[in-house]
Nucleic acid binder design. Structure first.
Lengths: 208, 208
DNA sequence: GCCGAGGGTGAGCGAGCGCTTAGAGTGCCC
DNA sequence: GGGCACTCTAAGCGCTCGCTCACCCTCGGC
């Protein structure tokens, strides 16, 4: 029914580029396990078991458990940044672009909330070099959102007294969706995205 | 509801009721360690060391490492709930009450961001019974905020198409402050509180 | 001076951790 | 068929974890 690239919700699975197959299965298993129990509470035996392999098999494809987290974090951040940027760079008024950015970014964090949780909340488990690389990706998120808001202010479409602070708040609001979103809850990722796009337009005082 | 002891920053220290002294020192040490490295990455040797004691001393005052986390979570949630409720129950228009609730709740999450991080992000490390107790406290947060928003809608002061969704978003925004707030950053807890109070009033469409 | 109680320690137990190693199974090229 | 490269496993190493235990120190009551 669905291809390897698509879930039922229509969100792209970010692991298409990972090969060989065994390495991808280990990565997917690690995402599940890290999201459920946290990086430090997850054992390499658990990851290998979920992937249907022996504990030693993990070390054929990854040097350490931390390398798994690093790979997940980098790919996850890049995919989320892609989603955000393609909305930020689209045609339309600043309000259109901001609404679309929030809608798609939130949809990603809700639909891919397992990946997002790992990516957002396990950063401190990475070593200094890997962490620095991820932090740089995050700053690009910030720049993308701030750019739209600045455009809106310059065009006179937004009323934002504190652009930097509002940027932080908007991103924080979107990212935290990964923490509370529940697949069995009453809302679909699309619905949360629509709600949040409206709330954010209010936050920036967009002229209706 | 305690009229608590105050630090220089004006935020109440939540641990006044914990005694004897050694038990309180261990609790404070555990909060620092859990906030820095996470529950699972923190060792009992580290906690005891920060409190200036031997590893075995921890077990005179607490049955397990998890009991420490449970105590921290319960006290932390109760203090945050106190802060939120005293604003929610105050006199004034719904807009005044909502602004004050957000301002003080955000101030708490920024000023006490070590406690708040532990309380918000280590919930899954608790066993089922302890977790259920904490989840019940969280629902009271939700009820307090939703109450103010409903009052505002009933009074015609707010324009909120989706009360439940907006409540979740407001609380999420406030709580996530604990994740990104940095003591060495450019903003004080008071400033973030003021910014967020304004943003939330916009989110609910408060008549200015 | 002696006692009991309670807070504290040094040493260490059993368990489970991340990771390694020796070797087996499998497919491919000659 | 034989050699090689690659993938994977069974077994287990060295280590650190949460936690325990036997014992010690301090102090108030008599």
């Amino acid at each position: 029914m669905s291809t390897a690239e698509e879930t039922a919700g229509g969100e792209p699975q970010p692991w298409g580029e990972v090969s060989p197959d065994a390495a991808r299965r280990l990565l997917v298993a690690a995402v599940e396990a890290f999201a459920e129990r946290g990086y430090h509470a997850t054992t390499t035996r658990d990851i290998a078991g979920r992937a249907g392999m022996s504990p030693a098999a993990l070390y054929i494809h990854y040097k350490t458990k931390e390398e798994l987290l690093h790979r997940i974090s980098r790919i996850g951040h890049e995919k989320a940044l892609d989603v955000l940027r393609s909305a930020a760079d689209s045609e339309g008024t600043p309000a259109d672009r901001l609404a679309e950015a929030v809608r798609s970014f939130v949809r990603w964090h809700a639909g891919q909330h397992t990946v997002a949780r790992v990516v957002q909340y396990e950063l401190d488990a990475l070593g200094p070099d890997a962490r620095a690389e991820i932090v740089a990706l995050r700053r690009q998120n910030d720049a993308a959102v701030r750019g739209i808001i600045e455009d809106g202010v310059a065009a006179g479409d937004f009323d934002v007294p504190d652009v930097k602070g509002t940027t932080v708040a908007v991103l924080s609001l979107c990212i935290d969706v990964a923490r509370w979103f529940n697949v069995n809850g009453p809302r679909t990722p699309d619905e949360v995205g629509a709600l949040y796009a409206d709330l954010v337009l209010r936050m920036v005082g967009a002229t209706q």
